[in-house]
């Protein structure tokens, strides 16, 4: 464990909690892409199956359980509790355009052709694109509430910190996980455009982030 990965995991947790609290307190999921949240729940469900097969550390177990619980709670709030505020007209990204290539690629590119390995690889590739429906929704509505942008900021920060973690582990431990690193870099690149808008619009106190 290193400070970059710890900060990254905390940033990831903060992002998930920010979103969950926003939906719970405002009793509405307007502007939130339910599809992205379902994809994230799928990412955790396919990646954390090793909870039942290998014990890494207490931290590892606790964080996996927390991420699974919070992501399913978010999906529950969006599609059940506050479904009448779910903005389905704007949450129209075709997730099959993500799932088909990700499934195909995880069968082609993996470390071992075993169910757990393929599911893990699937979850790595899926996480890289899971935010697309949310970013698509923001471009479609032309704006995002500031709390939603803070959610995206911490999500992007988590990915950027993981890249720092991999640089650190490469130099300190010679660790290099090609699938995770390549996919993680692609995922982080998707946030760059958002980061620019976040800094130039939200942090300038505009409140909402309205796209040009």
């Amino acid at each position: 464990m290193n400070i970059f990965r710890l900060a990254g995991d905390v940033s990831h947790l903060v992002a998930i909690i920010i979103l969950l609290l926003k939906i719970w307190r405002s009793k509405s999921c307007a502007g939130i892409s339910g599809k992205s949240q379902v994809l994230f729940a799928l990412v955790f469900s396919t990646r954390y199956l090793d909870l039942f097969t290998v014990f890494v550390s207490v931290y590892n177990v606790v964080m996996k359980v927390v991420f699974l619980a919070l992501s399913y709670a978010t999906v529950y709030l969006i599609y059940m509790r506050f479904r009448n505020s779910y903005d389905s007209e704007n949450d129209t990204f075709r997730v099959e355009f993500l799932l088909v290539p990700v499934i195909g690629l995880s069968f082609l590119e993996n470390y071992a052709f075993t169910p757990l390995e393929i599911l893990w690889t699937f979850s790595i590739f899926l996480e890289a694109v899971a935010i697309m429906p949310q970013l698509f929704m923001i471009t479609k509505t032309g704006e995002a509430e500031s709390i939603t942008t803070h959610y995206l900021f911490f999500l992007g920060l988590y990915r950027a910190l993981y890249i720092a973690n991999w640089v650190w582990r490469y130099h300190m431990e010679g660790f290099f996980d090609q699938i995770a690193v390549v996919s993680g870099v692609v995922q982080t690149i998707f946030y760059c455009d958002f980061f620019y808008l976040y800094v130039t619009r939200v942090l300038r106190g505009k409140g909402k982030m309205s796209l040009p």
Binding site: V56, N60, Y111, D177
Partner: peptide, 10 residues
């Protein structure tokens, strides 16, 4: 080889 390596990252 890498498949057996413990995946310790979240």
């Amino acid at each position: 080889e890498k498949a057996n390596k413990t995946k310790d990252e979240l």
